[in-house]
Design a protein around this nucleic acid. Structure first.
Lengths: 211, 211, 211, 211
DNA sequence: CATGAATGAGGTTTCATTCAT
DNA sequence: TATGAATGAAACCTCATTCAT
């Protein structure tokens, strides 16, 4: 990717007409496919447009540059996951710790696995495309939600601080990524759910038990 | 980076003479520096060579292409971490679980933080450069070592299987990465150590307590 | 020229719009000119593009690599000659041997001399650029045509086999090439016509007279 | 090949010591091999040196540049052929035409086929490396010899001029090249001998019979 | 709005040649 | 003499982006 001014990462215009929406969706889908089949450094705007069945020109009507195309995809997926976590946290407020973790982990993995291919594809970008900053910004919401939820646990005065929650979230992401990159068979995913619940639950409990 | 056949990722020749060794080290160091100062997609072979104080031609005497240069760096650092884990596992055999985890986590983080800049830089490339495969291959050793060690715990019949260990390792990596990308102040690192020990310890204990 | 996989020698896309056709023709012509003025090993794609009044990028839209550019030119010219021979053979069917050879040789030389500069330029590349294979493939048609024609000679049961015809064709090519590379003044060309007719005629006659 | 001043095409020094002779021969042989296995445009001085079992530096002790290396090979082989023709012509003086042609053609083909690989390899260079000029210069001797010989034919006042002989020589070369590039099985070579004799003999006879 | 031909800066890689050891 | 590490000019080729149609 050639150097690009840091501005202009937003999509160029929001599609309103039906045709436009279809076009944008085709582009989005094509990006995923190319990312998966060719990898980050053979992804070219021309190739994406071709796969989407439109011309490059059209692609550039919706995204001012390549970076914004990828950035949009990354943000979209991450928002989705963050939202899922937020909702799960709201639902689990006031419950006992074990139940909380169970619920949140399930929703987190659900969100990642809905279109697991997208998740996998995005691991190929996150480093570039404003990765860390974007990640931090989007994860902040999930972080707040989790911290808030933990404070309402019915069975334990929570000692969990922001840092502990970060560690937990990063662990969940790391483990899920690892499984996704190994292929993610259904049985693997089942085990992942189980283990992540155990991991988080025991961690939170241990935190609460600290002097 | 231009398309490159998946072969030819190995360095081209091992430096034998003193002069060569110095050259290769200069290239290695320059790669890190450029990665940190310019980022993955403004890293050019010319720039690396310049920074290393050699000509591009020289760089290409040791690495057949850009990919192999980056790949070599990634592998090198990962081997280092894997080795550190292996050694730590050997040292902690036969100890109680808590002590084991404490020891391994400490050594893991030590290895990552020695030249934290390198670790950070490498997160930018792991996705390309044969990432997953390389990761899997190199981590396999750490995995075996950890599993083996856990079986010798003095205080608990280990129920830990390969999958659980993968989850643990991925969690450690994920959390460490998260901290590194946020800046990694000394106090952060201290907290990370503490929390990762807690996380792993409680996880392993919980695993052992399962029906 | 850098190493190139043996595939991908075909032009990348056929020009359809008027603008494209002009572009491709400009590139073709520029290639000849550069070949003549600079020689095979100072012919660079950049130089060709410049001469053609387009950018390198444009050149690469029509030819996937340097080799294919040259290959296309070679094939084009050779097809032309082969076609000329085919047509001449068809026209001369049923005539006496002497007349046949006269006609074919004349048309062969006509075809080579139309843009003698191109012929000369192409001798510089035929060795690389898939030479032999291409030559064999394209000449096959001329070979068949000649053999077929000779069988219809009104004045002699033809003993000419495929091999004899190959020898004849190769002789014609060799002699013509020799003359072209010496400068090919009109008087030389006149003599060449005369002599090649004599050569072929007497050869075919001698073949027919063999026991 | 990079641009090189037109001077300095001669080998740098004549090897006198035994060791040197062996070295030069190894280089010569290696050049042929590389030419055959990799083709003209993947022939690099380093590769040749490697194949010859010496260092590049050593190669440059005997040839001032790549061009001279190739040029030397070309000239050497051509001289050989020319010499063979000269000798054959001397031997055949005073004989009848038919016998003359038979003798010369046989020796010509013998010379080309002794190390047919070399001949084939050289077709890959002749265009570059001062091709035409070199060819003209070296062939001049064969030309003179042939013309001289024909004038002494016992059975016919020769009408053959320099041009006719050029045509004949070019035909012989062309046909031989064609056969070599098609693989040159022994039976093919046998047929080639036969046919070239016939071709030349009938040609010369026809020339003599002209008004 | 869509198209896709054209652009050209710039990146990667090669390889003839030199020269200190 | 031989070596082979180093050089660096220069070649090939890509691809994000624009704009006339």
């Amino acid at each position: 990717m050639t150097a690009t001014a840091p501005h202009a990462l937003k999509p160029r215009k929001a599609p309103v007409q039906t045709r436009s929406i279809i076009t944008v969706e085709a582009i989005t889908e094509a990006t995923i496919q190319v990312l998966l089949s060719h990898g980050m450094d053979r992804l070219t705007t021309t190739l994406v447009a071709e796969r989407a069945g439109v011309s490059v020109g059209t692609l550039y009507q919706y995204y001012p540059n390549k970076r914004s195309l990828l950035s949009a995809m990354l943000e979209q997926k991450m928002e989705e996951v963050s939202l899922a976590v937020e909702v799960a946290c709201r639902e689990a407020r006031g419950k006992p710790l074990a139940e909380m973790m169970h619920h949140v982990v399930e929703r987190f993995i659900d969100a990642k696995m809905a279109r697991a291919d997208i998740s996998t594809a995005l691991y190929r970008i996150s480093a570039d495309v404003g990765g860390p900053e974007l990640v931090k910004r989007v994860e902040a919401r999930a972080l707040r939600a989790l911290t808030g939820m933990l404070a309402t646990a019915s069975d334990a005065g929570s000692k969990s601080d922001r840092f502990a929650v970060t560690v937990m979230l990063a662990s969940m992401s790391g483990a899920t990524r690892s499984v996704l990159e190994t292929g993610a068979s259904p049985s693997m995913v089942r085990k992942l759910r189980e283990h992540l619940v155990l991991l988080c639950e025991s961690y939170v409990t241990a935190l609460a038990a600290r002097p």
